[in-house]
Design a protein around this nucleic acid. Sequence first.
RNA 1: GGCCCGUUCGUCUAAGGGUUAGGACACCACCCUUUCACGGUGGUGAUACGAGUUCGAAUCUCGUACGGGCUACCA
Length: 507
Amino acid sequence: MSKKVRVRFAPSPTGGLHLGGVRTVLYNYLFAKKYGGDFLVRIEDTDQSRYVAGAEEYIFETLKWCGLEPDESVQHGGEYGPYRQSERKASYRQYAEKLVNDGHAYYAFDTTEELEKMRHDLKSAENHSPQYDHTVRLKMRNSLTLSPEEVNTLLKLETRHVIRIKMPDHENISFIDMIRGEVHFDSSLVDDKVLLKADGMPTYHLAVVVDDYLMKISHAFRGEEWLPSAPVHILLWKYLFGLENMPKWAHFPLILGPNGKLSKRDGAKFGFPVFAMNWTDPKTNELTEGFKEKGFLPEAFINLLALLGWNDGTEQEIFSKEELIQKFSMERVHSAGAKFDYEKAKWFNHEWIKQSGVGGLESGVKTLLVQNDITVNNDALLHKVIELVKDRCVLLSDFVNQSSFFFKAPETLDVDAVKPKWNDDKKNFFIAYSEKLQSVGEWNALALENSFKELAVEKAIKPGELQLPFRIMLVGGKFGPPVFNIAELLGKEETTARINKAINLFV
RNA sequence: GGCCCGUUCGUCUAAGGGUUAGGACACCACCCUUUCACGGUGGUGAUACGAGUUCGAAUCUCGUACGGGCUACCA
């Protein structure tokens, strides 16, 4: 057995990839990279009825945006493919049949109606959902109750059937979870899960064990919702490949929404994204908004996700991917679920925007401006604008409001903010200032401010009272960086043009 | 109902028997700024409850309560 760490992310292509899913990939990825191991992606698509067109491509696009792609040589270069379970169909049945032959599983011929009847008849106040377990299996139609001849006949006639695991009576099943420590189960309380479906496809339970063995997975990490089925998987390992070959397990805590497990609906309901990237359901045309489109930087997204359930024990909160790889440890992953807080998520993004260099922001900002019909034909100006404005942008999309007026004169001005205190003296000041600007020697913020103040003193008006009108003239509203910096970047021609145009609008 | 996991400020969390229970987000106040932010300083605010072990418990044990997950021929 290879000593190398091999972990996998195993999504089912049923549409979208939410926070919990991305965090699962992240932790898998970080763990693999930390120990110099392999990270691969296996697609769990054994339920063809739930497969959504485009969902698999979407998953890989998301991983790409997040920077969590599997190494090409691992994903496609190894001898462990294929990576789509539907393409591995042929190999599963033999394992299921081996289990039957060894007495650990059995054929079950019950029809859907018979199963429904059983559940209905056995349902009571003490038992909300009756299971197909050791107490009922001898009352059903399966190879445990039928004679070998009958079973053979049914199989020869290709009667629809499944293969179920035969859970042992009162066996204590336990394993060590890397996050939670020792976890115990009583096998009598677990039902006889279907391993091979009537269509010949394996269920997740069989597939995950067989694939993990065949792909030599050394560590298997997944969400906490899988904890209850762990005893089935452990038994399968014991019966099929030996407990000593079983991967080490860890079950991540759930990411919670305002009420319970975070769901797709929470996003629409509470106004925050729950998917990494926009996802449009091809069947319903319903759009679920993504962090990417909302204006998040992938670095910030990864960072905030990593800290939702893990920390390095210090007070550091901002981590690059490289730092996360270096500092991540499974032992420090929490065992309790974490409620997602959008405000904190935005804070992470703000921090990342502030510490990003102009170069890292440039292309994103540019496409955003272009999308909003702003023409950017001066990259040098764009650089200066980004530098000047980025501290006040929480989301990438904030760059639109914060910087479009540098490239395009505001269409409407917030005249109401100026009108009440506007008078002829102020009007005359701006007429004079506009003229004075023509002879300013060096066009920079400091010079502009000095000449502005000189003129104000000359006209006996407090400079402070003139700054807001000036801002409204240039920007259109009460926001943005310091006015004189704006004027500097706008240039002489544009600044005077905006002043002259606005002067008569405040009456 | 049964099984499993969990429980420190509103939220994310630190503190692995001895701390005035620390930090961050959010909130409030003040400072900076005659725009909006950034930034700075300070503040409100938590060990679910009850027993036990111990000189000493947020920390270990048990019980209770509460929360979450699972209970499909879905993953």
